[in-house]
């Protein structure tokens, strides 16, 4: 294995003071943004599983009073048209009580609902969701009930996808900022340490060390300091993650879908921490090489 033994002193300089803290904070932030995306993705895919393959057909009520039979006929025509389509798996007309239950939170007293022109809602589940099929369905239904409204959840869903994309971009932005801040701070700390270790570097050069050797010494040192810090950041991140999970599970069930982030997510956290430490190491290496080359 690669030994982390170096010819440089073990501590006391800018880099060894700075880098562990820096790494801990950066890795912590990194983990929070990664888990933010993961949670959001999980919730979204839960929702999308719930709505894919379904759409709702709305048959507006003709009028409030005494049009029950006409309304019923319109509903029957729509159901028949739907059932004749090969890609329709099932058709279910929502009972009035179910609709009242859906509306209750907004309208309050269920007794009043009977007097309102409540549309008929038909849940349709599809074996094929392509645009052509949905357009065919729309034509078939509006032929028999011209003012029927077909809601394929797509509009709502598209907004949700826009939101997710926005959220993803934001996370990538944060990751870029965090990474840049990490790299710049490592550059700064490495330069400061090089100034502090001027004499050591000079002796190493005079006994025949190549720039690469000196850079490797700094890189090893940075790696071990960075690993310390990122382990701390990882622990703090995982702890926060678990704490948030516990808080979320206290929230009334049904409001949030059950979030199981999966093995892939948990394994990605140590990998992210390791990657950050390696990034710090490479940055230190390149900084030393370029600083030495600019010296005469």
């Amino acid at each position: 294995m690669i030994s982390l033994r170096t010819d440089l002193p073990l501590g006391g300089d800018s880099a060894s003071r700075f880098i562990p803290w820096l790494m801990a904070i950066m890795v912590f932030l990194g983990i929070l943004s990664v888990s933010g995306v993961a949670v959001f993705d999980t919730i979204l895919s839960g929702w999308s599983r719930a709505v894919t393959g379904t759409l709702t057909v709305q048959i507006p009520a003709l009028s409030a009073i005494n049009e029950d039979s006409a309304n019923q006929a319109r509903t029957d025509r729509a159901v028949a048209a739907l059932e004749s389509l090969p890609s329709v798996r099932s058709v279910k007309v929502l009972k009035n009580t179910e609709i009242e239950a859906l509306l209750a939170p907004w309208l309050g007293d269920a007794a009043a609902i009977g007097d309102l022109p409540i549309p008929v809602l038909i849940d349709v589940s599809l074996s094929d969701e392509s645009t052509a099929i949905i357009e065919g369905l729309r034509t078939a239904v509006t032929t028999v009930v011209p003012d029927a409204i077909i809601d394929d959840h797509r509009r709502w869903f598209e907004h949700l996808i826009d939101l997710t994309e926005g959220f993803r971009l934001l996370t990538i932005g944060i990751a870029l900022i965090v990474t840049t801040a990490l790299a710049l701070t490592v550059v700064y700390a490495t330069r400061a340490s090089m100034a502090e270790f001027r004499e050591v570097i000079s002796v190493l050069h005079l006994i025949g060390a190549r720039d690469i050797y000196v850079a490797t010494q700094f890189a090893k040192r940075t790696l071990s300091a960075a690993l310390k810090g990122s382990a701390g950041g990882l622990l703090a991140g995982v702890f926060t993650q678990i704490a948030i999970g516990l808080l979320a599970s206290n929230v009334e069930s049904g409001f949030l879908p059950d979030i199981d982030l999966g093995f892939g997510f948990w394994i990605s956290l140590p990998l992210v921490s390791l990657a950050a430490a390696v990034l710090a190491m490479i940055t230190a290496y390149i900084t030393v090489l370029s600083t030495l080359r600019s010296m005469v």
Partner: peptide
């Protein structure tokens, strides 16, 4: 110009390690 943080052994070893 010995390196203060290294032992006598490591100081002497330096040209070989380099």
């Amino acid at each position: 110009r010995l390196l203060d943080h290294l032992s006598a052994f490591d100081n002497v070893a330096l040209p070989l390690r380099v």
